[in-house]
């Protein structure tokens, strides 16, 4: 089974601080939906920065989609992230001054590959955005509204459409449901699953809320994964 993401002996510490992450082995298979849990301050955000190529590990190897990130230049890592990864954050992840469609299309403005894929699959970028938004339950009457005119739940669905547009291989979600109530959370996750399956994307869902864990294919506890978990938290 091919891996979309694999870490081997990864170590990372912020400058002049104790080791924060020490992960001997971790991988995510293509199409898998993985729940990575961990309390606040356990290094989840740092791990996401490493996965996105924003930070580089001091030791170990990080292979994403067959590419060793540390062997790429900063610009190439930025390109790589834009082409292959979709991000979904806790909240406030839309640009409030853009309309919904423009927000969804943002990744296509920075990645020709994702723009080409979206156009190829749906005929045009606008149609791709419209399709994804409607699949996620946002009627076309809302598509020209400013992002800050939507409810938090609606904003999260727009952010999901943005992460999915152009079919990136990996969707990284960082506590995207923390602002939603339980019912909304579950409905949102099921929608996200459906769309990830449709796009053939793997999902790495990071959260401290374990109530959602049973919905996923696999659950990994960062505290168990990280040998440095006993060290004082630094972020």
């Amino acid at each position: 089974m091919s891996h979309v993401l694999s870490l081997t002996d990864l170590q990372f510490a912020w400058p002049n601080q104790a080791l924060l992450l020490d992960i001997p082995q971790f991988s995510l298979t293509r199409g898998e939906r993985l729940f990575l849990k961990g309390p606040s301050g356990s290094g989840k955000t740092t791990l996401l920065a490493l996965l996105g190529g924003i930070q580089l590990p001091q030791q170990g190897q990080l292979v994403t989609n067959g590419n060793t990130l540390s062997s790429l230049s900063a610009a190439a890592r930025d390109h790589f992230r834009a082409d292959h990864m979709g991000y979904l954050f806790q909240q406030f992840n839309l640009l409030p001054f853009l309309d919904i469609t423009s927000n969804v299309l943002l990744p296509c403005r920075f990645s020709k590959r994702r723009a080409a894929r979206a156009s190829e699959r749906y005929g045009s970028l606008e149609q791709a955005a419209r399709h994804l938004l409607e699949q996620l339950g946002l009627p076309s009457s809302l598509h020209s509204r400013r992002a800050d005119e939507l409810s938090i739940g609606q904003q999260q669905r727009v952010a999901a459409a943005r992460a999915l547009i152009g079919s990136p291989e990996l969707i990284i979600a960082d506590e995207p449901t923390s602002a939603l109530d339980y019912d909304s959370r579950e409905a949102f996750i099921r929608l996200l699953f459906a769309e990830c399956s449709g796009a053939g994307a793997s999902l790495l869902f990071v959260s401290h809320d374990q109530s959602l864990a049973p919905l996923f294919d696999r659950v990994v506890d960062l505290a168990e994964l990280n040998r440095a978990a006993g060290a004082p938290a630094c972020i």
């Binding site: 996105g52 924003i54 610009a75 930025d78 390109h79 992230r81 834009a82 082409d83 991000y87 954050f89 406030f92 992840n93 839309l94 640009l95 943002l106 990744p107 403005r109 920075f110 990645s111 994702r114 943005r162």
Partner: peptide, 16 residues
């Protein structure tokens, strides 16, 4: 800063 971070997450490079 949040606006910048969002742009970075959707693929904007620092020079963008």
């Amino acid at each position: 800063r949040r606006e910048m971070a969002i742009l970075r997450s959707v693929g904007a490079r620092p020079w963008h």
